[in-house]
């Protein structure tokens, strides 16, 4: 169908299967950058980037590889952040257990939200996820343990596995880096697994996947839960890095932000969400010190991306490389 051909999935038709030497090379360069970054740039900034990059990569698993636009991923990110922060601060959990709890919570929430949302497709799916996340936002606004407008502040970072002191910023940094790398490689594995191929088949032509005998809704739900859990992992780690979980993390602007990172970087490309996260986080850091209103700039980028730049930076780069090769 003509409309499908121009869908968000265009970019990944070219990007999906390529595990070429180029990708490997890029990954090695990326790994090296991550390892040396804290000596070059303010570590908290890099940690923020890594958390959001993982968040965006998790979101992209759903949009880029199954074609489902969730406009409510902040619920998983922020929900996990609350659980982790609460578990550490009120229950005295060690960080690894608190993160596990937060991630598990996001996964369970993913099952519930996913089960409801996949009853509808396309635009309705987006609206339903948005409404579900808003419901969760109001819940967090009222629930006593979230601290209302203040959020949960001053979360102690604690000792990882009982002996790695995360209040040391380099320790914290390499822990975040490890989580990011594991999460990213996991997504990469999923995308290139037989499960990932079926997801892509569903994205290309859902009816055909159904007629081939796949229980499409199970695969969609599976992808949704994986995506929600990884978004939760990112949120949990973020809560420890910033020692804070707040309403900002569950608001619809946060859901929009992760959409923007993915769109800007390149929907359906593995590196796109990472690139998008770097750009958006840097931009917000810059705007924080300027007088320009952040939502106006973010909104303008949204509009420009949709009108002129739908493949995103990595998508355009891939297309350019392909043209160069002929």
């Amino acid at each position: 169908m003509a409309t499908k051909a121009a869908s968000p999935n265009v970019a990944n038709v070219t990007a999906g299967h390529r595990t070429s030497s180029r990708t490997i090379a890029l990954m090695i360069i990326g790994l090296a950058l991550i390892l040396v970054a804290p000596f070059l740039i303010y570590p908290v900034f890099v940690m923020k980037v890594l958390c959001f990059a993982l968040f965006a990569a998790a979101f992209n698993l759903l949009l880029g590889y199954v074609g489902l636009l969730s406009f409510g991923h902040a619920a998983f990110f922020g929900g996990a952040a609350y659980i982790t922060a609460h578990a550490i601060k009120q229950w005295g959990y060690p960080p690894e257990l608190a993160i596990l709890l937060g991630t598990g919570f996001a996964a369970v929430m993913g099952v519930v939200f996913g089960y409801v949302a996949i009853k509808r497709q396309g635009i309705y799916f987006a609206m339903i996820t948005m409404a579900l996340a808003q419901m969760f936002y109001f819940f967090c606004l009222q629930a006593p343990f979230t601290g209302g407008e203040d959020g949960i502040q001053g979360v102690p970072r604690g000792k990882l596995f009982g002996f790695i002191d995360l209040s040391n910023s380099l320790n914290m940094y390499y822990f975040v880096a490890a989580v990011f790398i594991i999460g990213f490689l996991f997504i990469w594995r999923v995308v290139h697994s037989p499960f990932g191929s079926i997801l892509k088949a569903i994205r290309e032509n859902e009816q055909r996947a159904v007629s081939l005998g796949y229980r499409v809704n199970r695969y969609k739900l599976g992808a949704f839960v994986i995506s929600a859990a990884l978004a939760g992992l990112a949120g949990s780690v973020k809560a420890i890095v910033f020692q804070l979980a707040s309403l900002t993390d569950v608001g619809f602007q946060m859901s929009g932000e992760v959409v923007l990172m993915t769109l800007l970087g390149g929907i359906g490309t593995l590196m796109g969400p990472v690139v998008g996260a770097v750009l958006v986080v840097s931009l917000e850091n810059y705007l924080a010190t300027s007088s320009l209103p952040v939502p106006v700039v973010i909104g303008s980028i949204f509009v420009i991306c949709v009108l002129l730049f739908r493949r995103g930076i990595v998508g355009e780069f891939n297309a350019w490389m392909d043209r160069k090769r002929g």
Binding site: P8, V294, V296, G299, C305, L307, R310
Partner: peptide, 25 residues
């Protein structure tokens, strides 16, 4: 954007809403 996937309409108007509301704010 009419001949594109309908999701782009949502993304575009979401961006517009951010701009308009951001300016008034």
């Amino acid at each position: 954007i009419y001949n594109l996937d309908h999701l782009y309409g949502l993304l575009l108007t979401f961006g517009l809403a951010l701009v308009i509301e951001g300016l008034f704010r």
